[in-house]
Simulated scan of single mutants.
Amino acid sequence: MKYSLSILLILVLTGACRTRVETPRAMNPAAAVRQKAIDEIREADQNFSILSEKQGMARAFTTYAADDVIKLNDGAAPTIGFDSLRAQMARMPRDGSKLTWQVLKADAAQSGELGYSFGQWMLTNKDEAGKKSARHGVYVTVWKRQRNGQWRFVLDGGNQTPEPQ
C-alpha cells in the first residue's frame, strides 16, 4: 500500500510541476513575424510562376515587380525601374515560350519586410517544326513588402544550368 501511494504521489507531483513547453515561435514574436513573411514569400513566388505559365512572362513580371525593380539579364545590362521592365517585357517574342519555376528556399528578415526566394526555373518552347525544347537554370529573387502589405520583387536574376538530375 505504501509503495502504491508513493508512486501515486510522485505521478501527481510530476504532473503538477510540468510546465507547457512552447515552440520558439510562440515564445518569440519576432520569429513568428519572420516565419509568416517566409510563408508569404513562398506563396507570392509560387503564384508568380503560375501566372507566368498561364498568362505569360510579360504579364507575370509586370504584375509582381516593384516600382524600383532591378532585373538582371544574362549577357546584358540590368533593367532598372518598372517602366524599363514593362518596355523590355513588351519586346519579348510571343512564341508560346513558358517560363516556370519552383521555390527551393525562402528566407526573410526578422522585421518581415524583406526576404528572398531561390529555386530552379525551366523555359520551354517549340521550334518551327513543333519540336519541344527546354532550358534550365537557377534564380534568386529579392522580395520587399509594399505599403499595402503585398510582396513585390525588387531584384531578380538567374543563370542557365544543365538539366537537373
Rank of each mutant, 00 (worst) to 15 (best):
Y3D: 10
Y3L: 14
S6C: 06
V12G: 05
V12M: 10
L13W: 02
T14G: 15
T14H: 10
C17T: 08
C17M: 14
R18A: 14
E22Q: 04
T23K: 08
P24R: 06
R25S: 14
A31H: 11
A32R: 14
A32V: 09
V33P: 00
Q35Y: 15
A37W: 02
E40G: 15
I41F: 02
R42S: 10
D45G: 02
Q46S: 15
Q46T: 15
S49K: 04
S49T: 13
L51A: 14
S52T: 08
E53S: 12
K54S: 12
G56P: 07
A58K: 06
D68Y: 03
V69P: 01
N73Q: 12
G75K: 03
G75E: 00
A77Y: 05
T79N: 01
R86L: 03
A87F: 01
Q88A: 09
M89E: 10
R91G: 12
S97C: 01
S97H: 05
L99T: 11
W101D: 07
K105T: 06
A106P: 00
A109N: 05
Q110L: 10
S111C: 06
L114Y: 04
L114M: 07
G115C: 07
Y116I: 00
E128S: 15
R135S: 14
H136T: 05
H136C: 02
V140E: 12
V142H: 08
V142Q: 06
K144D: 09
Q146M: 09
G149M: 07
Q150A: 14
Q150K: 10
Q150W: 02
R152M: 08
F153H: 11
G157Q: 05
N159L: 13
Q160W: 04
T161K: 03
P162C: 15
